[in-house]
Design a protein around this nucleic acid. Structure first.
Length: 275
DNA sequence: CTTGCGCGACGTTTTACTTCA
DNA sequence: TATGAAGTAAAACGTCGCGCA
């Protein structure tokens, strides 16, 4: 069993937390590693850049990666075949189709095969690391950087370009998933809060209908009201720090009791749907 | 204003690989 | 154990829109 610990930070607006993934099989482990950006959004950048935080694991030593490494190695960077068309001048017209067995089995020539298929390159571990490092620095490349990186990796500039495009897409997808999950939780929390407040309203209304019972009681609670917007503020203990700081008005305290109906604006108006 | 070019975003296709029956 | 179907991640591609010269 191999244990993978991955730092997982959400957007700056959300609480950071640590995600611990325990992989019980090489498959799971490899998938996490291939994802690279999985659960590893950069903690403090607004752009949501992601980088792999997998540590201490030689991903490409896993069986599948080892198998493909020779083929995808830096020594044979042109093992891919670009597809038929392509307006980009960078596309390599010299790609050779090495999968002749498959071509023969389908009864077509190598040349035809080369023109109609594309061969996918598996990047080596070193190539992936360098690309990831580069992506962490800047998630887009100018032509000069692209050429330099391609030269360093032994890849074609087009391949580097495609890798960055796909990497940006993956980052965005992951960020969307994270945001979606966060909004889902917000919605759940608000629903629960709404339910609680509705119940409170019912209880308060019930109390208001029976003042003779209520008059002998001391005010049960203290609400604060904002003198500017004249709305009741939630007690500080029940509100998170973000919302508390967002409310810029200085609230004043007033007791709540059966006389509360004299308050200019009914405190729970905010709960009513706007017409 | 039009045109051509380069680039990024996005959706899709294809390939390599793993799992499982 | 071998094998093929199904599923998945990622490399590669096509297209569109935008900015710029």
């Amino acid at each position: 069993m191999i244990e993978v610990s991955t730092c997982f930070y959400i957007t700056p607006h959300t609480t950071s937390f640590i995600f611990i993934a325990t992989s019980t099989s090489t498959m799971t482990l490899q998938k996490e590693a291939h994802l690279g950006l999985t659960l590893s959004l950069h903690p403090f950048t607004s752009s949501g850049e992601a980088g792999s935080f997998l540590r201490g694991i030689d991903v490409n030593r896993l069986p599948s990666a080892v198998d493909c490494e020779d083929e995808a190695g830096v020594s044979s960077p042109n093992s891919t075949v670009s597809s038929v068309s392509g307006k980009r001048s960078e596309r390599d017209p010299n790609g050779e189709d090495q999968d002749t067995d498959r071509a023969c089995s389908r009864g077509i020539s190598d040349e035809e095969e080369a023109e109609t298929t594309r061969k996918k390159l598996r990047l080596s571990k070193d190539q992936s690391i360098i690309l990831e490092e580069s992506f962490k620095e800047h998630n887009t490349l100018n032509p000069k950087q692209k050429l330099a990186l391609a030269k360093q990796l032994g890849l074609r500039p087009r391949q580097v370009e495609v890798w960055f495009q796909n990497r940006r897409a993956r980052t965005k997808l992951k960020q969307t998933e994270v945001d979606c999950e966060f909004l889902k939780r917000c919605c759940e929390n608000l629903t629960e809060e709404n339910r609680r407040l509705q119940k409170e309203v019912q209880e308060l209304r019930a109390l208001k209908l029976s003042p003779q019972f209520y008059m002998h009681m001391t005010p049960p609670t203290t609400l604060t009201m904002c003198p500017s917007c004249e709305r009741v503020a939630v007690p500080p203990s029940a509100v998170d720090s973000v919302s508390a700081t967002r409310h810029h008005h200085v609230p004043r305290a007033f007791p709540l009791g059966p006389w509360a109906s004299s308050v200019p604006h009914r405190p729970f108006d905010a709960l009513r749907p706007r017409s």
